[in-house]
Design a protein around this nucleic acid. Structure first.
Length: 1240
RNA sequence: GCUGAAGUGGCGGAAUUGGUAUACGCGACGGACUUAAAAUCCGUUGGAGGCAACUCUGUGUGGGUUCGAUUCCCACCUUCAGCACCA
């Protein structure tokens, strides 16, 4: 007898036989029902297979073999996900062309996979990097393009400036380039996208009908991230640049004539010169001249807008050239004496100027302004506003204004200018220079705002005056439109388009620009790492108008708002959004509550030693807080003259039982010590310690004297006992949101030292009050009846309340349920209800070599033109020597690829797209290709799709939860919408399928022996080859299945494999000297049928570990027979063959059977044969097992009761007690319930 | 922080309409076979107590429901995974 079997010989033998006989080839003409069982195909890495790969493959193999034996036609293919970055990186690393290294890796992988005896139909093998495959990947690109689902857009990508290249996310480490450690920035590059978002809703809803794990479904749900809310628009105003649409007969479009001439209505030569200079810079082609018949108009309007308009009046209808005019006003804040429209008059108030010379008048004016400066410490900020009007030949007007900022000094520079005395006293805030010091560059800087305004007025050929609907505005998306009245500011994403559009209106644009720059430099990591530390810049000069109440809100940019989500802008409600709250705190913005929680906030006040709730400031505080809508508890604590902490806590703990995270505890003196004890155990919002006694007090030598003076010895002893407990400050810190403590500078018991010790342990808000003693009326020196300081601290908002509730501060909506108010407030704001998704469009461009070229040609005349289908595939050129990323896509370097490229539309010279496609494009449709892998005309024939799709069972890791599995679903939906799926495609028992994978099973990771994820860098990768060599493929397969549930992650531990090998050896020996006979008994038959049932059900549910364990039990039972019945043993062997196919084929053959065991029929079980007639019945008394009894199954309850009560052990436990209940669950258990004692 | 999954012997793990907790395997210990070892076979193996029959205790922690809870409910702790300023 052979002790052990020779696995190396046997396994090779059967693998060859299976291949030679095409045992696993799908029969195309089969009439059997189909099952498509699919593994996620591997990327053939250079490292070869590791023990994690075969876990899923073994599971599907067992399942496939099981299905075949149950008369299904099983499609079970394998192939290679060969394109993509990992393959290319590996090739770069070893210095071999990826085509070559990939081919080698595939050879190695094939060998390894085949050594495990999987039942793949190898004739369907595919390779995504083969032109016959990627031709169809390119075809899919064109399909999407035709459907407007593929488009080009600028997108920010990771860019390393020193390497001159785009980096993949995994190549960016801590915001720095993996290779050169240079800081990585975001760069806008034109990229190709697939519009997955178009199908967002369908991808979400389709999940319901799939048999996927709950975890995976929620992962996809979160990724798609649907949220419902409202889109609301806020109008913008600004004080630096404002267009003033005048009422005209025909509001609409102004046409500027083609003549490039403009008249300027002014008598002031220097203003004209200045304007000429500015126009030269704006547009040299525009000529500006003084209006031919200049008329001096009296500036007697009510405001500068009116004055400016008046100046153009004389020229109404006179010229076919636009006429420009301007009036300037000067603004000093808090200087009421200066009239903005008539500054000269302001200087000469009360002066009789008739007898004065021009010089003297100028001197007076100069004095006047010097005075203003002096009054303000030598310098005073002020600004000019220029109000421009343009009169168009058609008689319509357009107005616009700008603002220039200056600083007035009391230091005169240069000679007195009698026409403009003030000129010598100020310098520009922009250039920092005085008028006569200006260089040409300074001049343009100083007057840039004027230039911008003029540009805005003149340059566009057509000007659209803002109408109420089209006016500039900030659109926001919010899920809480009910809180609109609480919006106190707005934030735009730094990348928001509006920021650039409002450039001329933003006073601090250079600061804004700087912030945008630093944001770009921040890596995603930094942006999220500094989660709580909000940054941002206000857009000065800009305000937004709240549409419901007309309030002006400041506008900021900040990187906590993402450009890619919603509208890239938000309204901020700091009272009810934590992020807004943090930002508002940092920038000192107001916080308005608009939703009130339904629950009153609770406050517990704990009094101190020898005090009561009636004493001191407690009644006052209770009254004040109740006015403010708090629920206040001030318990009287027992034995206040001889308090025991434990007794106090017992009462206090019951009081705070229903305290929530919003509630507050206040403790005074010794009560503060008790309060700290409470805070160790429950989560609360605020903890107030007033003149707190802490564990430090007893040891405070600076207070020994005064304590002795005020307390008797007994009292000090009580105090010591009370505080003799260690506090867990760590717990208090994590339980309490904010801690406040009050000390008094003349407290006889608590000192600075205690305060310092406490603040070290419990950081928070610490205040030292003046002359409040121990903040206690029983203090002999000071009486304290009120403590007003505490109210504002209690009221202080320290975090946003995001819950729904009742509306307040919201005008007519007050009192309404906030959820109901959402729709109504949205309506009032003129917004609309919308839905947003987190899902982004799929970026498919890669500036890399090893991928399918994007089939697009760029023509200078026709733009992006798709390559015609007949020209596919666009071959990946072989003549790229250096395929390392160099900043330019490697395909740009190929001569072959760029030779004779013609535009398919116009035939002109054109350029090929140089980017390749993301590898996920290739593997989004590979399961179709398996069905028709040789087809040269279609990606897959329609009748084969109808016959074999969808995939019935798909097995793979979770790592593809949101990539591959979403994209594949997306591709299938696109195929459906383009008629590529057969019309009457079936889904299980009828109905249409538009989901590729009906059932999905995620195998867990197999980790290294160290419990960490297997990776080359950790050196914990286990290669199956050695294991297979030593123990055999069958042992290996069984062991991987036996390790635990397929879905769990588990560390690899080779020790256990011995048990499985032992089991197979046992089988070998058992069958080596088996003598068939007719022996069988009820017990053995029952066990066998039980095993068939168990194994069948376990395989159906992918619970292979328990299936194997019942096979082990079954063998043990079979071994008890000397000459077993052949059918019994055969049934067992057939089941085992799904798990350990090689050895079972060999045994099958050695036993003289015909054909392959893998082609036998799966055994059936008979429910009747499983039922045993005798069972061991457990007997409990009061729920505890006291005895077992072997009974006939159909024994009557009365008989049973008699038998049980006769049992010795049962007697012992019942012993005179009354039997209250006798519970018998047929065939399962008996429980006897008795009274506790005999007397009752 | 949010979402999801999970916590059971020395280890991998089993046990679901609530009904004998630790199946099966590994390891360990004892024994048989052997000159010896390996292999193989047999036995023991959650903890505490007891000569023993047996008793108490025990499925992350604390409560609850129930005749009976690893399983159901509530609160908490820990671990793993995914997402992460998503308005």
């Amino acid at each position: 007898m052979e002790q052990n079997y020779n696995h190396q010989k046997i396994e090779k033998k059967w693998q060859d036989k299976w291949e030679k006989d095409h045992v696993f080839k799908v029969d195309k003409n089969s009439q059997k029902e189909k099952k498509y069982v699919l593994d996620m195909f591997p990327y053939p890495s250079g490292a070869g297979l590791h023990v994690g790969h075969p876990e899923g493959y073994t599971a599907t193999d067992i399942y496939s073999r099981y299905l075949r034996m149950n008369n299904y036609e099983v499609i079970h293919p394998m192939g290679w996900d060969a394109f993509g970055l990992p393959a290319e990186n590996y090739a770069i690393k070893i210095g071999v062309h990826p085509k070559k290294s990939t081919a080698e890796n595939i050879v190695n992988f094939t060998k390894q996979i085949k050594s495990l005896g999987f039942s793949y139909d190898w004739e369907r093998e595919i390779n995504t990097s083969d032109p016959s495959y990627y031709k169809w990947s390119q075809w899919f690109f064109l399909l999407l393009y035709k459907n407007n689902l593929a488009y080009q857009k600028k997108a920010p990508v990771n860019w390393c400036d020193s390497c001159q290249t785009v980096l993949a996310n995994e190549q960016v480490v801590d915001g720095k380039c993996e290779r050169c450690k240079n800081e990585v920035i975001k760069k806008d590059l034109k990229q190709w996208f697939f519009k997955v978002t178009e199908y967002a809703d369908e991808l979400l809803e389709g999940l319901d009908k799939l048999e996927w794990s709950h975890a995976l479904k929620t992962m996809q749900k979160n990724w798609i991230g649907k949220s419902e809310g409202a889109e609301i628009k806020f109008q913008i105003t600004n004080n630096k640049f404002q267009t003033n649409s005048l009422p005209t007969g025909q509001a609409g479009k102004f046409q500027i004539p083609n003549s490039k001439k403009i008249y300027f209505a002014t008598g002031n030569k220097s203003k004209l010169e200045r304007l000429k200079k500015l126009f030269k810079k704006i547009d040299p082609q525009i000529k500006i001249e003084q209006v031919p018949d200049y008329v001096d108009v009296e500036e007697n309007g009510q405001d500068a807008w009116e004055n400016s308009l008046k100046k153009t009046d004389p020229y109404q209808g006179k010229y076919d050239v636009p006429v420009l005019s301007m009036d300037t006003a000067v603004f000093f804040s808090n200087e009421d004496e200066v009239d903005p429209l008539a500054p000269k008059r302001s200087c000469l108030k009360g002066v009789d100027e008739k007898n004065l010379t021009q010089e003297e008048i100028a001197e007076k004016a100069l004095e006047f302004y010097k005075n203003i400066a002096q009054k303000n410490g030598g310098e005073k900020e002020f600004y000019y506003e220029d109000f421009w009007t343009i009169l168009y030949p058609n008689g319509e007007h357009q107005q616009i204004k700008n603002r220039r900022d200056y600083i007035l000094t009391d230091q005169q520079a240069g000679d007195l200018d009698i026409y403009f005395p003030m000129k010598n006293l100020y310098y520009s805030k922009v250039s920092g220079k005085r008028f006569f010091e200006n260089t040409a560059e300074d001049f343009f800087k100083e007057f840039e705002c004027q230039a911008n305004v003029l540009k805005e007025l003149i340059l566009p050929k057509i000007i659209n005056p803002p109408t109420s609907e089209e006016a500039l505005g900030i659109k926001v998306f919010t899920t809480r439109p009910d809180t609109l009245y609480g919006a106190t500011y707005m934030v735009l994403a730094p990348e928001h388009q509006l920021v650039q559009e409002l450039k001329i209106s933003i006073e601090n644009f250079s600061e804004v620009e700087k912030y945008i720059e630093t944001t770009k430099k921040k890596s995603d990591l930094e942006r999220t790492d500094l989660n709580k530390n909000k940054t941002g810049v206000e857009l000065k000069g800009i305000k937004a108008i709240n549409p419901v109440n007309g309030k002006e809100l400041p506008v900021y940019i900040s990187d906590y708002v993402l450009a890619t989500y919603g509208t890239g802008a938000i309204m901020c409600v700091p009272a009810h959004d934590q992020r807004d709250f943090e930002f508002a705190q940092k920038f000192n913005l107001s916080i308005i509550d608009v939703v009130q929680s339904q629950r009153k906030t609770k406050v517990l006040i704990v009094h101190g030693f020898m005090a009561t709730s009636k004493d001191d400031w407690f009644p006052w505080l209770k009254k004040e807080l109740e006015k403010l809508n708090y629920e206040v508890l001030v318990p009287d604590l027992p034995d206040t003259k001889n308090p025991i902490l434990k007794d106090w806590l017992k009462i206090l703990e019951s009081l705070v039982q229903d305290f929530a995270e919003d509630d507050i505890i206040i403790g005074h003196s010794m009560g503060a010590f008790a309060a700290q004890h409470l805070a160790q155990k429950i989560k609360i919002n605020k903890l107030f310690l007033v003149a707190p006694v802490s564990e430090f007090m007893v040891d405070d030598q600076t207070r020994t004297e005064s304590i002795k003076e005020n307390f008797t010895k007994e009292q000090i002893e009580i105090l010591r006992k009370f505080t003799d407990y260690q506090l867990n400050y760590q717990n208090i810190k994590s339980n309490v949101e904010k801690i406040y403590a009050y000390f008094s500078d003349d407290d006889p018991y608590t000192s600075d030292k205690q305060q310092k010790q406490l603040v070290e342990k419990l950081p928070g808000e610490y205040r030292v009050l003046k002359n409040k003693g121990h903040i206690n009326i029983s203090d002999s020196r000071v009486s304290v009846f009120e403590l007003p300081e505490i109210i504002s601290d209690i009221e202080e908002k320290i975090r946003a309340t995001e819950a729904q509730g009742k509306m307040i501060n919201s005008e007519e909506f007050d009192g309404m349920d906030s959820e109901k108010a959402q729709q109504k407030i949205t309506k009032k704001a003129g917004g609309k209800l919308t839905t947003q998704y987190k899902l982004r469009d799929w970026l498919v461009s890669r500036q890399r070599y090893w991928g399918a070229p994007i089939p697009i040609i760029h023509c200078p005349k026709c733009g992006a033109v798709p390559v015609p289908e007949k020209d596919l595939p666009v071959l990946l050129p072989d003549d790229v020597q250096d395929f390392r990323p160099t900043g330019q896509p490697p395909l740009a370097l190929s001569k072959e690829f760029n030779k004779n490229v013609q535009c398919p539309k116009c035939g002109g010279e054109a350029i090929r797209e140089h980017d390749t496609m993301d590898g996920f494009v290739d593997n989004s449709w590979y399961y179709y290709r398996y069905l028709d892998s040789q087809n040269e005309k279609e990606f897959c024939a329609k009748d084969l799709i109808k016959k074999y799709m969808p995939v019935d069972t798909y097995v793979g890791g979770t790592e593809h939860a949101v990539g591959h599995l979403i994209y594949s679903r997306f591709f299938t939906k696109v195929l459906r919408d383009n008629g590529y799926l057969p019309a009457d495609r079936s889904l299980g028992e009828g109905g249409d399928f538009d989901e590729p994978f009906l059932k999905l099973i995620n195998q867990g990771l197999i980790m290294g022996t160290d419990g960490q994820k297997m990776s080359k860098s950790l050196g914990n990768v286990v290669n199956p080859d050695e294991v297979v060599e030593e123990y055999g493929a069958d042992s290996f397969r069984m062991y991987e299945m036996f390790m635990g549930p397929l879905e769990d992650s588990k560390p690899w531990n080779i020790d256990g494999i011995k048990g499985l090998r032992r089991f197979l050896d046992k089988n070998w020996r058992y069958f080596s000297d088996i003598n068939y006979g007719d022996e069988s008994n009820n017990q053995v038959v029952s066990i066998l049928h039980k095993t068939i049932k168990k194994v069948t059900e376990d395989i159906e549910n992918f619970r292979f570990n328990t299936a194997i364990s019942s096979l082990m039990v079954c063998l043990k039972i079979l071994s008890s027979l000397n000459s077993p019945d052949k059918t019994l043993v055969d049934s067992y062997l057939i089941m085992l063959s799904a798990f350990a196919p090689h050895i079972c084929e060999e045994i099958w053959q050695k036993l003289g059977n015909e054909g392959f065991i893998c082609r036998q029929e799966w055994p059936k079980y008979d429910e009747k044969l499983i039922v045993e007639d005798k069972i061991n019945l457990p007997i409990q008394i009061n729920g505890k097992l006291r005895a077992t009894l072997e009974i006939e199954v159909d024994i009557s309850e009365d008989d049973l009761k008699k038998q049980i009560l006769g049992l010795e052990n049962v007697q012992r436990f019942i012993d005179g007690k009354e039997i209250v209940k006798f519970i018998y669950i047929k065939g399962k258990i008996v429980n006897i319930v008795t009274c506790l004692s005999a007397d009752k």
